[in-house]
Write a protein that binds this DNA or RNA. Structure first.
Lengths: 168, 168
DNA sequence: TCCACTGTTCAAAAAAACTTGAACAATTCC
DNA sequence: GGAATTGTTCAAGTTTTTTTGAACAGTGGA
């Protein structure tokens, strides 16, 4: 019934593997990460043995390019590590499964940079606001900018707490 | 120098308005929301008077459709409210500026639904795993599924805490 | 009732994001 | 060194998301 290249990888993945992969596809989408990353992490997560890049390409029916880039991102996030690679030339990967680490990696790579760049933009903003001549308007602008600063500050405070809370 | 329809709305927005709008464009992008929503919220945030849909269309140079849909989303998120609408037929909008409310709306609309659907998918997953005949494999699957459950549970616990922490 | 005005909807166009695949680099083994 | 294998890069193609704009619905005033 299924064509060989059907979208649901029914040829290569067991029913439970499909379900878990889809679970993570939805999951990473919420985080703003591409589908392929959810597929890769999902399959690693539900595999009892480490998998190679080629395993991922074959089982998920994605391109080598996607698999390579996806694994790189996952490594950067600390969501995947290389398994002990005995008597085989290729690299095998296994998932990091503790929440603290996963959340920490996500915060470090995807959130912190934005908070930091936001903070520096706020300084610019303050300088621009200072040029406003009308005092009433200037007061209003300063009030709003202060609010933004308090938001950023709280964000910076909450993230480590979050990580702590989630780390059991 | 600028063409009338240039991308940076230098004709219609003051320098500070541009900066704040860009600030929020970047901000909402992190949250996975479209650019126009950041533009709209940003302009409202830095305006001392409420603005109408037409004001937004003109100042931001976006279509009426974008402005209408963007305002709807922002209303749903609780990020924007209608201002007291005296002697004018059109509706004016002002931003909600307290972080607790903003975060709460985002969680309610964009996060909770995914957590809930995730939880129900996990039940499915458990049923599928139970069909696995090999006991070792089944044990592995159950262990991983339990881990997912613990993740979801923590997520469900952390969100209200987050909101509380941010609510001053 | 009809007109003028405000705002919504949604199909099509445009833009943005993701994936592919082929060329290439790097490494190992003989 | 040379062949075979593993993995990376990135321009082009594909898919997904967002925006546009024109038709339409709703409302108030004359």
């Amino acid at each position: 019934m299924d064509s060989p290249a059907s979208k649901t990888q029914s040829e290569n993945l067991s029913s439970i593997q499909q379900q878990v992969v889809n679970f993570f596809v939805d999951g990473v989408r919420v985080l703003g990460l591409p589908r392929s990353i959810g597929e890769i992490y999902g399959l690693l997560f539900i595999s009892s043995e480490p998998l190679s890049l080629d395993d991922l390409v074959q089982k998920l029916e994605i391109s080598k390019g996607s698999a390579s880039q996806g694994l790189r991102t996952l490594k950067t996030l600390g969501a995947v590590r290389e398994a002990n690679n005995i008597n085989d030339r290729r690299t095998y990967y296994e998932p990091a499964t503790d929440l603290k680490r996963l959340v920490g990696g996500f915060i470090r790579e995807q959130i912190r940079p934005h908070i930091d760049s936001g903070k520096s933009k706020l300084q610019q903003l303050q300088e621009t606001a200072a040029l406003t001549t009308d005092p009433t308007e200037r007061a209003f602008l300063n009030e709003r900018i202060e609010r933004l600063e308090s938001w950023m500050k709280r964000g910076g405070q909450v993230l480590p707490m979050l990580q702590k809370i989630l780390g059991q």
